[in-house]
Design a protein around this nucleic acid. Structure first.
Lengths: 210, 210
DNA sequence: TGTTTTTTGTTGCTTTTGCAACAGAAAATG
DNA sequence: CATTTTCTGTTGCAAAAGCAACAAAAAACA
């Protein structure tokens, strides 16, 4: 099992003397980075939260990913096409580490301790990301809104070791995460309640089915 | 940019004397592995192809991922829930490398060269996987079959540096990859043709729009 | 604390998608 | 190379999902 605590501890202790890793602060609604597929850049969010948003040719915006503490992102993970623009926007004030993928496994000239630890933990960081992405795909491949909701609720319930759990974001954002129309999702949520599959109280959900 | 050729070369030269990495052969339709979240296992397919399939509680089967040469997969990438069973089935005869994630970065007692190279290239292998997964999510988040098709065709066209490209799998599998009903997809494909957005000849597609 | 903005909850109507079923073409198999 | 299996292409109909719009509740903000 990948140890999340180890990663968290090491990121908390950030203090890098080399110029290969940089820390920057952002205010709410600022653009953290735009994916341009030139720099092979990778970012780790140390605190706060941010969204990866896509603007398509019509100017329509949609949220692709939501990042919180210790999440890793960046253009290095994307094959950037010309059909839309990807950028990461701060949802709250936040601090972010920036570095270039190709430099990770290179030794710093000043033997920077943090940089070395980053190199050692990098696989773990990405592995966590792969798991998150697989989870998302697992849910997105379900064919109906009902199945998406149930699939996602199952995962949250398993993670929380409890039939009751809180949604990690608003219902509006949930619809976006599941990639469905919000009103249609609300309708389905209502049927799930009416048919006795779930109980809902604010953003707390309880599963009533096996 | 991650160098696919380097990875390919190194996998071609597989010869590991340690018992941490094992190579096994499979016949078409054999089960390569089942995800049970106990071993933290990782696999690399050296040749042939395989599918990651999910059987849900009703026994319905669906294809989650399709693996070909040099793809990496395994239970280490998944949070396994009790609601369905994941297994990888050989689509053709194939050869697969098996190892345990936790052992990758450990030095072999017999200083196995391959094992060392695996460790060095591991980040690259996963990075490629992350890019594939992000591509898939990019497509799955599109709201209509038409947008999914166009999004996917754009990616194939960009990758091929050409308005014309071959589909990497059958139309039946394409519907599965986009996670939509096959007949509905065929209908949409027909309209795209009729409306002059694409040309289709067997499994070759040409984009006629910008 | 009063005001503005965002989120929730709901509905009627339209469009899209899925389902079931079938026939012909193509591919795989023994 | 004859036969079985898979894949393609198509359709009518039913069900699900999207869209637009609005009011009430909650949250953010100044």
């Amino acid at each position: 099992m990948v140890n999340k605590l180890v990663i968290e501890k090491f990121l908390n202790d950030f203090s890098c003397t080399c110029k290969n890793v940089q820390k920057k602060s952002f205010k709410k609604n600022q653009t953290i980075t735009t994916y341009i597929q030139k720099r092979n850049q990778i970012c780790i969010i140390l605190n706060g939260s941010a969204d990866l948003v896509r603007y398509d040719l019509n100017g329509d915006k949609s949220i692709i990913e939501h990042f919180t503490k210790n999440d890793i992102f960046g253009e290095a993970f994307y094959i950037v096409t010309t059909n839309n623009e990807l950028s990461v926007e701060a949802k709250t004030n936040c601090e972010v580490l920036f570095f270039i993928y190709d430099n990770i496994h290179q030794k710093c000239t000043n033997n920077c301790k943090f940089h070395q630890t980053l190199s050692e933990n990098f696989s773990n960081l990405i592995l966590n990301k792969v798991m998150d992405l697989n989870t998302r795909i697992e849910i997105l491949t379900k064919r109906s809104i009902r199945e998406k909701l149930r699939g996602y609720f199952n995962i949250l319930s398993t993670r929380n070791l409890n039939q009751t759990f809180s949604l990690p974001f608003s219902l509006t954002d949930l619809a976006d995460y599941l990639s469905v129309d919000r009103s249609a999702m609300m309708r389905e949520l209502k049927s799930l309640k009416d048919e006795g599959f779930i109980k809902k109280n604010g953003n707390k959900i309880t599963l009533l089915y096996k």
